[in-house]
Design a protein around this nucleic acid. Structure first.
Lengths: 202, 202
DNA sequence: TGCCCAATTGACCGGTCGGCCAATCGAGGC
DNA sequence: GCCTCGATTGGCCGACCGGTCAATTGGGCA
């Protein structure tokens, strides 16, 4: 019976407080621009406590990435398992779902970008099964004649994942391009091109 | 008459030595991870000389970006002006050219990625005319019936630019995905989807 | 030739970085 | 009621950061 505890000590809460603040700052500024002193202040803990719970700045960065990627992959995997039978609309819906997921989770996009620049391939290995499942789905759709057969299924997955990612990652770059439309307008045009491009050719 | 000079002083050469070393390190590590002391060592100049020629670390970073982007845009603009009349092959050739340009200039890709994460929109404004010219070309091709008319021309340009960029930017991420092919294999599949997707629909 | 000014140098600065440590504190087990 | 052990604290450290400055050097010009 320890309800309504006004605990002065709660190591688990402390860990998540540090992780939350760290994720926010790392996502915003990248690893080397983050100062542990400022991080401690924003998490309302002492700097020593960070070292006590995570060892070093680098280990904290790893912990942040691991937690975020795990959240990402379990979420994506759940979404993928919730998908139904391969039909013409499933691919379109998957693209839309991924696009909107990234739009609503800008932190994930930046986290990916930082790790790419670090050359960290760890996060890329985690989603092997995710991509594998998607590619397998494409392969089945190809055999059923729903998609053209002369393209690598993995490339189909990679193409729409990369397009969605880069749209949000480089938004500051191309948002002022002349004639560039809104998120939804671009997604619509991309889907037109993509769906027509992967459809069986005659 | 100052040929075969073994000049002990050459401020212009010093500037470019610093710029070259700085570009190399900034591209590799990003702004905040670069230490001026290490940079000075690698450029074989004193730290004070960097401040003498560029003022501050941030101004040096700006100078590096400006030089690199200027090189990039003049090169791209020349390539674009060298393109001939709009025909079916020009779009395909442009995609291939851009893809291979990024493949051969990995520094540019990383520079873009760093500036995206900084939220620096300066570089994105520079290529307004580049994108504008490309979009105009697409518009003409649409009117001639070479491309489908129900898509935003700017989105067509954005789509292939972003795909090429992200392919190299996130290479460490997806290069180990199961079934992923080589640079050329992916480009080939992308071109199949892209060219079929932008072709007039029936 | 001598002067001038930019190029270049090395010594130096205050600040703060990541990390460490001894001491204190607090909750849970005996 | 202590006793133990992890949680937590504040103070501290050496290193090194970006930046400054006075002094020296060397090339171009009158």
């Amino acid at each position: 019976m320890m309800s309504q505890k006004t605990q002065t000590r709660d190591p688990e809460l402390t860990r998540t407080r540090i992780l939350d603040a760290a994720e926010s700052q790392f996502v915003e500024q990248g690893f080397s621009a983050v100062k542990l002193s400022a991080l401690a202040r924003s998490a309302d803990v002492t700097k020593s406590l960070i070292h006590h719970h995570f060892g070093s700045k680098e280990q904290l960065w790893e912990a942040v990435k691991n937690r975020a990627f795990e959240r990402y992959y379990t979420g994506q995997m759940a979404m993928l398992e919730g998908a139904g039978e391969p039909d013409a609309m499933l691919l379109r819906n998957s693209v839309e779902a991924y696009f909107h997921f990234l739009r609503d989770n800008p932190g994930v996009v930046r986290l990916f970008a930082w790790t790419h620049l670090e050359g960290d391939s760890h996060c890329g290995e985690l989603d092997n099964q995710l991509v594998g499942a998607g590619a397998e789905w494409v392969r089945q759709a190809q055999m059923r004649g729903l998609l053209r057969k002369d393209i690598n299924p993995t490339h189909v997955i990679a193409l729409f994942v990369m397009t969605c990612t880069q749209w949000f990652e480089a938004k500051c770059h191309h948002q002022h391009w002349p004639g560039m439309g809104s998120d939804e307008a671009f997604l619509e045009d991309f889907l037109k091109i993509f769906m027509a491009g992967v459809a069986p050719q005659n």
